[in-house]
Each structure stands twice: as C-alpha cells, then as structure tokens.
Write a protein that binds this DNA or RNA. Sequence first.
DNA 1: GTAACGAACGCAACTCAGTAACAAATTTAT
DNA 2: ATAAATTTGTTACTGAGTTGCGTTCGTTAC
Lengths: 215, 215
Amino acid sequence: MIPGMTPSEPEPGLRTLKKQRTRQTIADVAIALFLDRGFAQVSVAEIAAAAEVSKPTLFRYFATKEELVLHRFADHLGEAGRVVRDRAAGLTPLDALERHHLAGLAAHEPQTGLTDDPEVLAFLRLVYETPELSAQLLDYVDADADALAEALDPEGGIAARLFAAQYVAVRQVLARTAWAGLAGGQDIAEAGPRAVAETATAFALLRDGARAQGF
Amino acid sequence: MIPGMTPSEPEPGLRTLKKQRTRQTIADVAIALFLDRGFAQVSVAEIAAAAEVSKPTLFRYFATKEELVLHRFADHLGEAGRVVRDRAAGLTPLDALERHHLAGLAAHEPQTGLTDDPEVLAFLRLVYETPELSAQLLDYVDADADALAEALDPEGGIAARLFAAQYVAVRQVLARTAWAGLAGGQDIAEAGPRAVAETATAFALLRDGARAQGF
DNA sequence: GTAACGAACGCAACTCAGTAACAAATTTAT
DNA sequence: ATAAATTTGTTACTGAGTTGCGTTCGTTAC
C-alpha cells in the first residue's frame, strides 16, 4: 500500500463520482430554492423535479428535508473533540479551543457566524430563522458535545461532560450573536472586533467561572 | 375585587371546564399509548379515536404529536428566570439556582431526573430515548435560557446570555445523568447522594470555571 | 324559557414528508 | 460479452398536519 493514502478509497470509480455529483446537485438546487422562497414553501417533490431525480432517490441521498440544508454542518462534527485531542503539548483544552475559535473568526469561517459573504449570511439566516432547522441544528451540537466529552475524558466522567456541554452552548451563543450583528446591517470591520471581544468574555467566563463575572 | 384572586379568571365556566378535561384526556390517553407501544408505533388517528375526539380536534389542543408528551415541561418554562428574579437579597443568581436545584432533588421532582416513581421513570425514558422528543425538548430548554438571560440582564448583555446558556446546558446534563443511573437499575438511596455530588461538581464548575477543574 | 350568538366540534377531503415493492437501467467484474 | 451488484424510476402507500363547511352546544340577552 502506498504510504499516506487511506486504505478505504482504493478507486474513485465512475459510479462513486456520479453519486457525489448527484448529491451535490440535489443539495445545491434545494438550498437555492429555500433561499429564494423559504424552507416551508418548497416541497421535496419540487426539489426532486428541479434536480432531475425521483423523490425516492432524493431520500436515498438525504434522510430528511432538513438534511438538505444541515449536511453542511456535518463536516465540522466532532471538530471540538479533534481540537482537544490534537492540541500542542502544554496547552490546556480550553486554551486550544479558544485559539481555534479565534482562528475561525480570523478566517471568517461560516460556523463562527462572522462572514462578509452575502451568500453565507443568507444561508445562516435560513438556518437560524427556520425553526425546524434550528431545532435540528441543536442535535448536531449535542453530538459535538459528546465527542468533546469523550476527548476530554474517555472514562466518561461527569466533569468532562458538564464542561463539554457548557462549551458547545457558549459556542452557539457566540455564533448566533456574531451573525445577528451582521444580519442587522453591521459592517464587518465593526462586527469582527466585537466578535473577538465577545469571545474573550466567553472564554473568561468558561475559564474563571461566574463568580468572576458577578453572577 | 376579592384580594388574593387573580383578576384574569373571573369564572371557571362550563365550557372552559370541559375544554380542560378534554385536553387532559387526550394527553393522558396519548402518553399511556406511547408508554405501552412507543412513540412512533402509535398514530395520532389512533389517539384521537381512543380519546373519542376527531383528529382536527386533537390538533386544536396540541400543535404537534410531540406536544402531547412535552406539554408537561411547559409548566416549568421560565422557572430559572423566576428563581433568579425572586431570589433572597444577598444571594447571587448562581447560589439561588443551586439551592433551587438541590431542593428539586430533595423533592424528587421529575425535571431533576431523580425519582423513585416507576411511572415517572418510564415517562422520562420515553422522552430521553425518543429522538424526536429529545430534539423538541431542547427547544424548551432554549426558551428557558432566554428567560434566564432576561432575568439576569434585561439589557441583553452577552455575558448574561452566555451564562444562561451554560446553566441550562449543565442542568440538562445533570438531569439526564441522574435519570440514566436510575434507569440502569440504581437504587435511589445510591442515586440520590450521587446526584447531589454531581450537582456540587456542576456548580463548582460554573462558579469557579474550568481552570479550577484542570480543563 | 327562548332566541340569538359565538365557540367548539365532526366530517370529508386535501397537502406533503417519508417509505415500500418491484421492475428497468447502468456500472463493475469476469 | 455476459453475469452480478448497485442505482434508479414508477407506483402506491402510511401518517402528520390542514382546510372548509355544516352542525352542535354553551353562553348571553331578552
């Protein structure tokens, strides 16, 4: 076996390639329609027709209507756990998570809520302002917390699970807040530093507790 | 007006009474069926028939199938906010919340996850082990966080929102953990003290931060 | 007590998400 | 080229939630 290659993808394959393309097409068509007319106002039958597949085929690629939108978050699933596991020696988990979040802000990654791109902003608006999608998003967040807890303490201790839950909750608030500012017409030159400041507040709260903040 | 009476319920009324009774009946019938055969295995049509109402009537009382179960949590909505608002002078918000949670544990309140009652345990099992219900439950939790944040800081400051998110996340973990122990066959004489100890860990983490716990 | 009003209800029919069964088409392996 | 495995389309179904309408029943005024 060639070193540096993962063993479980021996050939791209013509079939696999077409599948990826079909999946991408369906999702793109769906999101475009949702952005145009709203999540509830577009039926899956219409999406299937526009993507030129049958309805059962659509559901072979995406388990639910919500997944058509939320699969984009699937890539980041377990990221917090990875950050902690792969952190530099001598760094606390919380330090590693803070640096990672600040790096995400600097790169204007969608998941941080801080971005200039009108398309990404519209996408986030779709997710945050559609109750069905927001609700489902919380499930992803929950899975992320589980992965983080596992990374912090494979024994499954309560302290790790508590801290993981706190962290992902805080992350959600930071992302939504940053997005809300931009969605409300804030300039990114203003929202960026503000998001960084809010991140500092958040991690100070996580690190030193509520007592230090007067709660 | 008679002192000590709330002004907004001038008459019970025969119609209102029947409505409350109908609502109760529908929910009770539904939960009994769910407990017996599982959430997905019971259709709303069947529930409506068993409760002797039509399907549209059922949906006039409960917006969704999930609400048939989760409306029981609606009573506690905003409780955290109330606890903070009505706390004794000289008590920090966090102290008030901790005392309230410990009181809930001592009273074996269902929301704490700590209870002897097999019926309540079965009900919690239904909620926690049915994905649709767990997901919806997170929405209630989210609303609770908003109310708590408002109570902590009517200005809507970020620190209050962050802390509120942390608190409700922690509360969820505590409740699920306590329940999991009992559901796994633990005796309440063992689970009770354990839940109290976990509560202490949780509030220590909230109060003094992750640094103190080595994260 | 009775008539009039409005709220709640049942019935029937509908939309839409998601699934099942089976047959046709297409890719991969031989 | 041909057989085996995988993917797809068609049709038809279940079940959640909604709509429109006519009817019933509690409430209120006379």
